[in-house]
């Protein structure tokens, strides 16, 4: 389904942004209201529900024992999967994941993996044979723009909230002790900020209306020390070097604010 934005909406949003204002009253570097709940699904070993404005994502964590990849025999696995549920938007359709869903899962996966959110070596049980595989499922319930920042924030919150059973090795067999559980070995807390370029200006946390008319998009993943761990450019138009540097600068301030929600 094609999203058609009336010319008048496009014009009013662009004019406002050129004046340093936004249609919903925010300033260019303001996030919408964020709410974060953890431990919402008892059957999941870790879970979170994140709301960024009207965007709403449920994140669930399930551990499983599996075999490591051949090239990394002593490292556990973190698998990120996303589903853009048809209930979340009239433009999402049932069926196999489309390119938007795959992009979301892969960008979140990169940000978490390269941001070293989990010390995956500690998830090795028997080298080359058995490791913990952590499945992270993004369940997008309501789509009102900027899925990526919400997904990364919620994922980190869910991982921080996760407890997995203790796995012991007894006579070369893996025994799972369901009675006792441990927290995941969390190493870093990477977060992501996304900007939309509209009318030549960058605005953070684009709403759906802004995403529909944006010329370009840039998402930046950052660790707590300010180093970069993932980036993704989207949209049809180019970005300049200066714009990307500006986005990185704002990200280093804004991830500090976002991190407050994890406490």
């Amino acid at each position: 389904m094609v999203n058609i934005v009336p010319e008048i909406t496009r014009k009013s949003i662009t004019e406002l942004i050129k004046k340093g204002e936004r249609a919903d009253g925010r300033s260019p570097n303001d996030y919408r209201d964020i709410s974060l709940e953890v431990g919402v699904i008892e059957k999941a070993e870790g879970s979170a529900r994140v709301k960024m404005g009207n965007t709403q994502i449920m994140i669930g964590i399930k551990p499983q024992i599996g075999e490591p990849f051949a090239d990394t025999p002593n490292v556990g696995v973190l698998m990120t999967n996303s589903e853009l549920l048809p209930m979340a938007s009239p433009t999402f359709e049932p069926g196999p994941p489309d390119e938007r869903s795959v992009e979301l899962a892969r960008v979140v996966d990169r940000c978490l993996r390269e941001g070293e959110v989990i010390d995956l070596e500690k998830l090795c049980i028997i080298e080359g044979e058995k490791v913990w595989m952590i499945f992270l499922d993004l369940h997008v319930l309501d789509y009102d723009g900027n899925l990526m920042d919400a997904a990364v924030l919620g994922s980190v919150a869910a991982l921080l909230n996760t407890k997995i059973p203790v796995a012991k090795v007894e006579e070369d067999n893996v025994v799972i002790d369901e009675e006792n559980s441990v927290e995941l070995p969390i190493k870093e807390k990477p977060l992501m900020c996304t900007f939309a370029k509209i009318g030549g200006e960058l605005v953070i946390d684009p709403s759906l209306d802004e995403e529909n008319i944006m010329d370009a998009r840039i998402s930046i993943g950052m660790r707590e020390d300010g180093s970069l761990c993932a980036m993704q450019k989207g949209g049809e138009m180019p970005l300049t070097n200066e714009e990307i540097k500006e986005a990185i600068n704002i990200t280093s301030q804004k991830t500090k604010e976002l991190r407050e929600h994890l406490k």
Binding site: I41, G60, Q64, E83, L85, P94, F135, D137
Partner: peptide, 17 residues
């Protein structure tokens, strides 16, 4: 109608789809 279970809704993870 589409009835769908979240992968994290049950004890062992359900494969999506």
């Amino acid at each position: 109608c589409r009835y769908n279970m979240a992968p994290f809704s049950v004890g062992d993870r359900k494969r999506p789809g």
